[in-house]
Simulated scan of single mutants.
Amino acid sequence: MFGRIDHTNYPPKQNVLIWDGKCGFCKFWKTRWEEKTKGKIRFKTYQEFAQNFPDIPLKEFKKASRLIEPDGKVYSGPDSAYRSLWHSGTTFHHELYQSNNFFRKFSDHAYNHIAKNRHFYFRLTKFLFGNNPLNLKHYWIFYLVLIILILFLL
């Protein structure tokens, strides 16, 4: 389970999302988020950037992504993604995470499960959405219709 870190004493000049540069699943979704946030957030791997935050243990960067804002506020795990989307104008998820305990616990649990099974979820992501994060193919709709059709025919 990732640790929640609320603040750093070494704030960046611009919002920065720190992620695992060796994770294909992370890279796929980082690319998607980077386009959505349109330069409002810098994206750096923990391998290249964690040393800029000596008050955050390296092991915590290895466990979860972190969005760090210029006021020193740190958002961890799923809320780093939700807060990143907040910067793009999609505020619903971050606000729900902050206000709803059930949604927060569910998100944290799902995030931890995905983090422990990244390879599987990366393959699943490509199966459902294709290989290009900038041009998602919604194959999952086809698969869903196919399953419904098969069930109907049985």
Rank of each mutant, 00 (worst) to 15 (best):
D6F: 12
T8F: 00
N9Y: 15
N9Q: 14
N9L: 14
Y10A: 06
Y10L: 07
P11I: 09
P12F: 11
P12S: 14
K13F: 08
Q14G: 01
N15L: 15
V16R: 00
L17W: 07
G21L: 07
G21V: 05
G24P: 12
K30S: 03
K30A: 10
W33C: 05
E35T: 12
K36N: 09
K40Q: 13
I41H: 02
R42W: 14
R42K: 15
K44V: 09
T45Q: 02
Y46F: 13
Y46I: 07
Q47N: 04
E48Y: 07
E48H: 04
F49L: 04
Q51K: 10
Q51D: 07
D55R: 02
D55C: 05
I56N: 01
E60N: 00
E60S: 04
K62Q: 14
K62S: 03
R66Q: 14
D71F: 05
G72T: 06
G72Y: 03
G72V: 03
K73A: 14
V74A: 05
S76L: 08
S76Y: 09
G77F: 02
G77S: 00
P78R: 00
P78T: 02
S80N: 04
A81H: 08
A81G: 11
R83P: 02
S84D: 01
L85V: 05
L85S: 05
L85D: 09
S88F: 09
S88L: 01
G89N: 01
T90H: 15
T90I: 14
H93D: 15
L96K: 10
Y97W: 12
Q98K: 10
F102Y: 15
F102T: 13
F103V: 01
R104T: 01
K105D: 08
A110P: 10
A110E: 05
Y111W: 03
Y111P: 01
H113S: 07
A115K: 03
N117L: 02
R118S: 04
Y121W: 11
R123S: 12
L124T: 01
T125A: 02
K126Y: 08
F127Q: 13
F127D: 09
L128A: 05
F129V: 07
G130S: 03
G130Y: 13
N131K: 12
N131V: 11
L134V: 04
N135S: 13
N135D: 13
H138L: 15
Y139G: 02
Y143W: 12
Y143K: 04
I148L: 14
I150W: 04
L153M: 11
